[in-house]
Nucleic acid binder design. Structure first.
Lengths: 198, 198
DNA sequence: TTGACAACTTACCTACTAGTAAGTAAGCTT
DNA sequence: AAGCTTACTTACTAGTAGGTAAGTTGTCAA
C-alpha cells in the first residue's frame, strides 16, 4: 500500500464532517478536497456513502464499548463517577464550536440514514441507554441516587434529555448542555461535592 | 386572484414535507409535483426557500402563541392541565407515522436554516421554554408539582427531554414519547389520577 | 523482467438542486 | 379598448449530488 492510512484519513474526515454538518450535509467532494484526492478515490475505499456512514457508526460503537467496559471495571462501585463520565462524552465534541456530538447528530439525521447505518445507529443508542439504566439502577441500590419509577424508563427519559441538550447546545453554546447535566444531577439528588469534579 | 389560496396550499404542503423530511429534505420540485404546479410557480409566491421556511416558522409561532394564550386564560389556575396540553402538542404530529414534530425537527436541522428562519426558530423555542418555566413555577408555588433547583433550569432540562423524546419517537414509535412524558410527570410528583386524563 | 495487484486519476453520467428570464392568458381598472 | 397586474408556464442556467468505467502508476513477488 502506497499510503496505508488513506482509508482511515477518509473515515476521520468523514467523522469531522458528519459532526459538523450531519450525514446528509457532507459529500464525497468535501472529503476529497480536504484530503487532496479525487471524488473517485473515496469511492474506491468506500464504494458508496452508506458504506462510509456505516463504518463511521461501527467505529463509534467500538470506541464506546471499549470506554464503557473500561469504566465499568475501573469504577465498578461508583455509579456517580460513571454517570459523570457518561454525561461528559458529548463535551468532547461540543467543545469545538459548531460541532455536534454523535448522540444528537445521528438522531437528527435518522430519516436520511441508509438501512445498514440505521441498524448500527440503533445498536449504539441501545447500548448507551442500557448502560445508563445499569448505572441508575446501581446508584439507587447503593443509595447515592434517588428517583421514582422504573430505572429503564428513567434512563430513557434522561437519555432523551441529554440528546436534546446536546442538539440545543450545538446551536447555542456548551454551557446549555452543562446546565442540563447539572439539573439531571440535582434531580437525582447527587450531592454537590461529587458534582464539582465533573 | 384566480386562485386565492395557492400560496396557502404551498405553505401547507411545505409544512407537511418539512415535518416528514426536514427543511433541507424537501425541494420546490416536491411541492410543485404534489400541487400540480411548476417549479417557478413556487418561486413566484416565495422567491426563495428561506422565504418559504420563514413563513412556515412564523405561522407556527402565531399558532403557538394563540394556543398558549388560550390555555393560559382557560386554565389560569391549573398548571398541571397546562403542562399536559403542552406535552401533548408533539403528539398531534407524531401520530402520523414518519412525521416529526416541529420542536425536534427544527432543532435537528438548525445547521441548515437560513438566517431569518433561524431567528424565527429561536424565538419560537424561547417562547415555548418560557411558557414551560412559567407553568413549572406556578405548579411548585401551588404545591401540585415538586422539583429542585431553579424553575428556568428545570424548564430547560425538561424542554431538552421533550425535544429529544420527540426526535426518538419519530424514528421508533410514539409510545416512546409517551413514556418519557410519564416519567416527567412522575419526576414532578404529579399524582397519577390527573395523569390519566393525558 | 514480467505480471499482478493496490491505489489511485481522468473523464464521464444521470439526477437533482435552487433560482431566473421571458412569455402568456385572464381579469381588473380606467 | 388600453394598459396594468396577477398568476402562472416554458425553458433554461449553474452548481452539486452520488456513482462508474477505464486508464495510469508504483510496489512487490515470482
Amino acid at each position: 500500500m502506497s499510503n496505508p492510512d488513506t482509508k482511515t484519513r477518509i473515515l476521520n474526515e468523514a467523522q469531522r464532517l458528519i459532526h459538523a454538518y450531519g450525514y446528509q450535509g457532507f459529500s464525497y467532494k468535501h472529503i476529497a478536497e480536504r484530503l487532496g484526492l479525487r471524488n473517485a478515490a473515496i469511492h474506491y475505499h468506500f464504494p458508496n456513502k452508506a458504506d462510509l456512514g456505516t463504518a463511521y457508526v461501527e467505529r463509534l460503537l467500538t470506541q464506546f464499548s471499549g470506554y464503557r467496559d473500561h469504566l465499568n471495571q475501573k469504577y465498578a462501585n461508583d455509579p456517580v463517577l460513571r454517570l459523570q463520565r457518561l454525561t461528559a462524552i458529548p463535551l468532547n465534541y461540543l467543545s469545538t464550536p459548531g460541532m455536534t456530538c454523535p448522540l444528537g447528530m445521528l438522531e437528527a439525521d435518522i430519516r436520511f440514514l441508509p438501512a445498514p447505518m440505521l441498524q448500527a445507529t440503533h445498536a449504539l443508542g441501545q447500548a448507551m441507554r442500557a448502560w445508563l439504566a445499569e448505572i441508575l439502577e446501581q446508584g439507587r441500590a447503593l443509595g447515592v441516587m434517588q428517583f421514582h419509577g422504573d430505572a429503564k424508563t428513567k434512563a430513557l427519559a434522561s437519555w432523551a434529555m441529554l440528546q436534546g441538550a446536546s442538539l440545543m447546545a450545538a446551536s447555542h453554546d456548551v454551557e446549555l448542555y452543562e446546565q442540563v447535566v447539572n439539573q439531571l444531577f440535582t434531580d437525582l439528588r447527587i450531592d454537590n461535592a461529587a458534582q464539582e469534579t465533573l
